[in-house]
Design a protein around this nucleic acid. Sequence first.
DNA 1: TCAAAAGTGTTAGATTTACACCCATGA
DNA 2: TCATGGGTGTAAATCTAACACTTTTGA
Lengths: 225, 225
Amino acid sequence: MTAYYREHQKLFVSVDCIIFGFEENKLKVLIGKRQMNPGRGEWSLYGGFVAADESIDEAANRVLFHLTGLRNLYMKQVGAFGSVDRDPGERVISVAYYALINVKDYDDKLRKEHGVQWVSINEIPPLYSDHNEMIMEALRLMRQKIKTEPISFRLLPSLFTLTQLQRLYEAVNGEEVDKRNFRKRIKDMDFIEKTELIDKSSSKRGAYLYRFNKKAYNESNNFKL
Amino acid sequence: MTAYYREHQKLFVSVDCIIFGFEENKLKVLIGKRQMNPGRGEWSLYGGFVAADESIDEAANRVLFHLTGLRNLYMKQVGAFGSVDRDPGERVISVAYYALINVKDYDDKLRKEHGVQWVSINEIPPLYSDHNEMIMEALRLMRQKIKTEPISFRLLPSLFTLTQLQRLYEAVNGEEVDKRNFRKRIKDMDFIEKTELIDKSSSKRGAYLYRFNKKAYNESNNFKL
DNA sequence: TCAAAAGTGTTAGATTTACACCCATGA
DNA sequence: TCATGGGTGTAAATCTAACACTTTTGA
């Protein structure tokens, strides 16, 4: 270590994950009761410390995998949270990440083992430390992103109906949209492909199932919602 | 320290500042040659370590003040950069911030003492570590922000001409805009006030000077450019 | 047969873009 | 007097938002 570093102090660095899911036409996040001190029993995001031999992105992926058993989730950094007293135990800088998962990909048994649950973003209780702020900021960023990038499909099964997709947008943005205008915009995006399959789970008549064609997207690339 | 923390490692945490200024109709950033190892002599952003008794925002403000002698600069976090080997000397997590200053507020003597200079964002040389990435991300965020919040005035003197303001937008976004359309939009924003003062420094005829009325903005609040 | 969700076009209004000439002044 | 930057309005095109009825089918 050169003299340059020697005089400075090291700090704990952690990651906290805001995991978004779409269920019952609501946008939800995974939270659980803290099982350790400080803050045992308080509602909290799921997180972990960053080790010296891993990048913060790797740490976030490791924590996400540990919690969900899923890899290659869509994940974006929210930012670093660094008030001096944000953690009541020690000085800890935390880097928040948000991730998107299709709720059905998440093994419910594993979820319960970790003691986390899906809570609607409109019903988030007061959380440990600055975790409420983290969620609000993650939501702001995700809302922004979902307008210009095709990330919504990460929250849905690979086959979905247009009503499901619309409900997802409504849940994310917290406001209803006009069905005809919505479907018009979808039609303009050739990479949202209609299949011949029909889903009858939510209506008698049944609705066509659509799929996101990533290859077609990469070529035509004009997402806008 | 509870058992919970004991098993984890601490890391160095630093801040790096992307300081934007507007000069010669160009958007510029402050960079300098590193005066310490590792990386002595390489072009670099200005930064510093985060101490245990200050928040990362405070650290960024301290570093900004040290470099510029200015307080209450507009400042936003860009994000945390945390590859394992991003710093060739030690494991260092760095949190990048961008700040906006009016170049004329910055004492040129002080600038030279710190050995930093204004470089156009189109002419940034290869920088130390991941600093080029930091600038690109800061620029992306700043471009986004300037569309919906009145931060452009932080880059200009308190009195400015509409041509100056237009050139600033053009420099930030890297594309020219139509003069009449630009001025039409400005007229819609009542908080950009025309004064009776005239600036003759860039034309014989002279141009009216305008000012941003923060109070009027806070009341009417409908910025859009 | 009827309740419930799926599916489908048109129009008015708002917003955005393109575009060209006169003005005032100092050199 | 002329070169330079300052200042101004209109019209076409595009985009956005509002709006209502028919279809299908299982219960």
